[in-house]
């Protein structure tokens, strides 16, 4: 059917450019689709509704926390302490590799069971591989008169909460 075109000069060339056009279009579309698919895949993998406990949690009334006690709130991995100067909350997650530390009442220090880091009750590193002190967390009093701790909000070391 294309016998007629055979003889015409330029026809073949035009056919070739047309072919190049479709080739380019096809490959670019495939390329874009591939890149888009990758982006979409990333988007798909990113959950948009999380089922994680809220970072802010409530404790009892201030009186319910015994002065001088170090209390580990296990659900949120936070030490809550009450000393004469006020309340403080320290993260219980070791700054080395994320193990949950334990309070050693005999030594009055916090120790990590994984690699032997030890922290003071101020969060300072006493020994071991931990690179940073344990972070201090925001402590507040709610309107209903309860102590609230926010694990997402770090405060400067030594920021105690006074009633």
């Amino acid at each position: 059917m294309s016998n007629k075109d055979e003889g015409r000069p330029g026809e073949g060339l035009r056919a070739i450019t047309r072919r190049r056009f479709f080739q380019t279009a096809g490959f670019s579309a495939c390329g874009i689709a591939a890149v888009g698919a990758a982006a979409l895949g990333e988007n798909f993998l990113e959950p948009r509704a999380l089922f994680e406990p809220p970072t802010r949690f409530l404790l009892g009334a201030p009186e319910s926390i015994t002065p001088g006690a170090v209390y580990l709130e296990e659900a949120h991995q936070v030490y809550v302490m009450r000393f004469a100067e006020g309340f403080r909350a320290l993260s219980a997650v070791c700054t080395h590799l994320g193990c949950i530390t334990r309070y050693q009442p005999d030594d009055k220090c916090i120790a990590c069971p994984c690699h032997g880091s030890r922290f003071s009750l101020d969060g300072e590193v006493l020994e071991g591989p931990a690179p940073r002190p344990l972070p201090w967390l925001r402590v507040e009093l709610t309107a209903s008169g309860r102590i609230a701790v926010n694990t997402a909000e770090e405060v400067a070391l030594g920021t105690v909460f006074k009633l």
Binding site: L40, N43, F44, E46, P47, R48, A49
Partner: peptide, 13 residues
């Protein structure tokens, strides 16, 4: 339901 309502392109997939 999560696929339908929350996950990006979940229902499409």
């Amino acid at each position: 339901k999560e696929l339908q309502f929350v996950v990006s392109n979940g229902l499409f997939l």
